[in-house]
Design a protein around this nucleic acid. Structure first.
Lengths: 190, 190
DNA sequence: GAGAACAAACCGTCTGGTCGGTACAGAAAG
DNA sequence: CTTTCTGTACCGACCAGACGGTTTGTTCTC
């Protein structure tokens, strides 16, 4: 795996993610990805021998980025629940963190892949299940799940730009979620 | 619009919705819809002259069903926020209501259509925006939005069967959401 | 029998994937 | 040093199947 090869692969994954975010999955064709990345179709298929392989690579990179950021947020002193809340808002709070930058838009691109094909979603179910299992063992599982669901719902809403909260309200929402997450992490049953 | 015609149209919409729910949008082909509905492709295109028209009809029917149920929940004495919460759980609470039955699965099928194509989503943005606008004018907009987002997130999670809460926990979650919705509707700032 | 409701063969386009070939960097051979 | 060979990275024409939509013909209903 030379440096050049790695760079091309990055360009291809970036292009594919961009297309999903900006145009929706059904415009994600191999020709379009190749064109956007400035690579020929043959070049694309040299690195990712099938569309399936390309999609898999997208999801894997996304998962890796997300895990790295989540870990780093926890080692900075956030409890597991608060870290999860901040995961969704990290882009706005610390834009300088762009190296491990992962924002809601990308996560939606990820979820969108699931929406397209149930069969495909099944393959990733286990990984996500184990990740979310921890949220059922906090000091207040009910509130923890509400927080988690609220963040996911907010993500969806913003992606589809449907009934979104104005910025000020959104900030208040995040603030309240963080406050509750803190209480849960510190063991207060509220 | 004869009775026979209406029946076939229903069958087609049902088939299309089922396919989206069970197999994902990318298996939603005209041939598949026709086959599932027990109608020929020509028959399908007689009623819905294009795939676009079929999708539009699906979304419109879904919106109508949802609005009817929401209205009826409100006239039964629920406040606007509580009615919204119950909208998501209605299937389990009152299965006999199947005439205007709309469950989370169907709403996801609906959202999934948006995920596939941004352009398509734009067409429905306005309707949804006006519906959700009321949730920013309750006695506690922050909490109201959290409830709304949580319900949407839960819906997503259940659809993709990813990190779902066990039934008991889920009931507790709904119960707590209803409790808070009641407080908001009755004007308590909590 | 007339129009509505459907059937089925057919067509053009789009798209995932194949395939033969090119460019080039370095290793091996002379 | 130069020639030959080899493997990596990439190109772009082409193909086969899938899919949306058309056309033409048939059946059902009133």
């Amino acid at each position: 795996m030379t440096n050049r090869s790695l760079l091309t692969k990055q360009k291809l994954l970036d292009a594919a993610t961009d297309i999903i975010m900006e145009q929706g999955v059904h415009h994600l064709t191999l020709d379009e990805v190749a064109k956007t990345a400035g690579v020929s179709k043959g070049g694309l298929l040299y690195h990712y021998p099938s569309k399936e392989a390309l999609l898999t690579a997208i999801v894997e990179r996304l998962q890796t980025e997300q895990n790295e950021l989540y870990e780093s947020l926890q080692t900075e002193g956030n409890g597991p629940v608060e870290a999860f809340v901040r995961l969704f808002d990290e882009t706005k709070l610390h834009p300088e963190r762009s190296a491990i930058h992962i924002d809601a838009e990308k996560m939606i691109a990820f979820l969108t892949l699931f929406a397209v094909d149930q069969e495909y979603a099944e393959r990733w179910k286990h990984d996500l299940d184990t990740f979310f299992a921890q949220f059922q063992q906090t000091s207040d599982p009910v509130e923890t799940m509400i927080i988690r669901y609220a963040l996911e719902g907010m993500m969806m809403s913003e992606h589809f730009n449907v009934g979104v909260a104005p910025p000020a309200l959104k900030q208040d929402i995040i603030a309240r979620l963080i406050e509750r997450a803190r209480n849960i992490d510190s063991g207060k049953t509220d």
